[in-house]
């Protein structure tokens, strides 16, 4: 076990993949000499060369489209999108090409592309630097979408994503990059929990609280705070956003009977909507209350001095938990 930052854990995972498979190529803007604007690829170009850690021209569709061509040639490109809000120029290549190629060619052409996206807010950035675009991609068939919440998963899941023969969107919570945690760098990938599995990170009996990425830490803190009031929250880290691990969610909701989902992304059509709808379909008779979503508002990402109002924090999450439990809450008297 080594204590390291989230960013360093991803770096270590990338290094392992580069070492283990000569077909792995990293591509992106400023990922070489600079080591990426968040230093996630620090030192990798120096150690593996400019042909494996490639500084690309400043064109996201170009990066994604050439990654498709490299995958066609048998490579495993790992693409860095510098910031969440910069992914949209690459949207067409991701949705129309990366996601559909395997289906289009009846399995003949694989697209083992990993798309790394630093995402989410909370760092006081200007516009386009704090977004949570994951639902665009979970809605797109052919893609796998994961989000990591701690250094160990970051280390393990980046390698699992790269090893996957399907394209994977890998969402990195940028406000947690400097958080430290223990990482076992000797962990055998085949022994590690599958990238597609959710994990119960705090066991509880009264409410299931579902989070992913940056809000897992907030959710765990909320569970601790609630315990002081005698409320037992079970926190689930989704890890995989597409596909969702419904088995783990169902087990928890059948036990607690109450469901709260939280994410930074806007509410409408988000991951929370999918979790709420599917769990309602699958566990209707186990639910004691309507599922509750605690999310970013349906607004464009606001200016940074207001972002803490937009981002679900501990208190807003606990207010949602109170709603699920039928305890006094900010909307008391409005329901029904």
């Amino acid at each position: 076990m080594t204590k390291m930052t989230f960013a360093r854990a991803i770096n270590s995972g990338l290094r392992k993949s580069l070492e283990n498979d000569p077909k792995v190529i990293l591509m992106g803007e400023d990922i070489g000499a600079l080591g990426g604007v968040f230093r996630v690829t620090d030192g990798l170009q120096k150690d593996f060369g400019k042909h494996r850690v490639v500084d690309t021209p400043l064109a996201e569709s170009g990066i994604m489209g050439t990654a498709v061509g490299l995958a066609y040639r048998g490579y495993r490109p790992v693409v860095e999108i510098q910031f969440d809000g910069f992914i949209y120029p690459a949207f067409d290549q991701i949705v129309s090409q990366v996601a559909k190629m395997h289906y289009r060619t009846q399995g003949a052409v694989k697209m083992p592309i990993t798309i790394r996206v630093p995402f989410g807010g909370g760092i006081g950035s200007p516009e386009h630097h704090s977004e949570s675009p994951e639902a665009y991609f979970t809605h797109t068939s052919g893609l796998r979408v994961v989000s990591v919440s701690n250094p160990q998963d970051a280390f393990t899941m980046i390698q699992q994503a790269i090893a996957s023969d399907d394209p994977v969107l890998y969402f990195e919570p940028k406000r947690r990059y400097h958080d430290k945690g223990e990482v076992d760098e000797t962990l055998d990938l085949s022994a590690a929990l599958s990238m597609e599995k959710a994990r119960v990170v705090t066991e509880g009996t009264d409410v299931t609280l579902v989070a992913y990425g940056p809000l897992v830490k907030t959710a765990k803190d909320a569970a601790l705070a609630a315990a002081d009031e005698g409320v037992s929250i079970e926190v689930i880290d989704l890890r995989s956003l597409a596909p969702l691990d419904f088995a783990t969610l169902e087990d928890s909701v059948r036990k607690t009977g109450r469901l709260v989902i939280t994410h930074e992304a806007s509410q409408t059509g988000g991951i929370g909507a999918e979790v709420a709808a599917s769990i309602t379909e699958r566990c209707f008779y186990h639910l004691e209350a309507a599922p509750v979503r605690v999310t970013g508002f349906d607004v464009p990402y606001p200016y940074s001095k207001l972002e803490m109002h937009h981002l679900p924090g501990l208190d807003r999450i606990l207010d949602g938990v109170d709603r699920a439990l039928g305890r006094p809450n900010s909307l008391s008297g409005l329901e029904g």
Partner: peptide, 26 residues
């Protein structure tokens, strides 16, 4: 595509020029 060394037809206009370039990088 691999049996004839020609990708399948591209309908999104121009998208394949990037694929060719990436393939050439490979």
């Amino acid at each position: 595509p691999y049996t004839v060394n020609i990708a399948t037809q591209q309908i999104i206009i121009g998208a394949q020029t990037l694929h060719a370039t990436g393939y050439a990088m490979g």
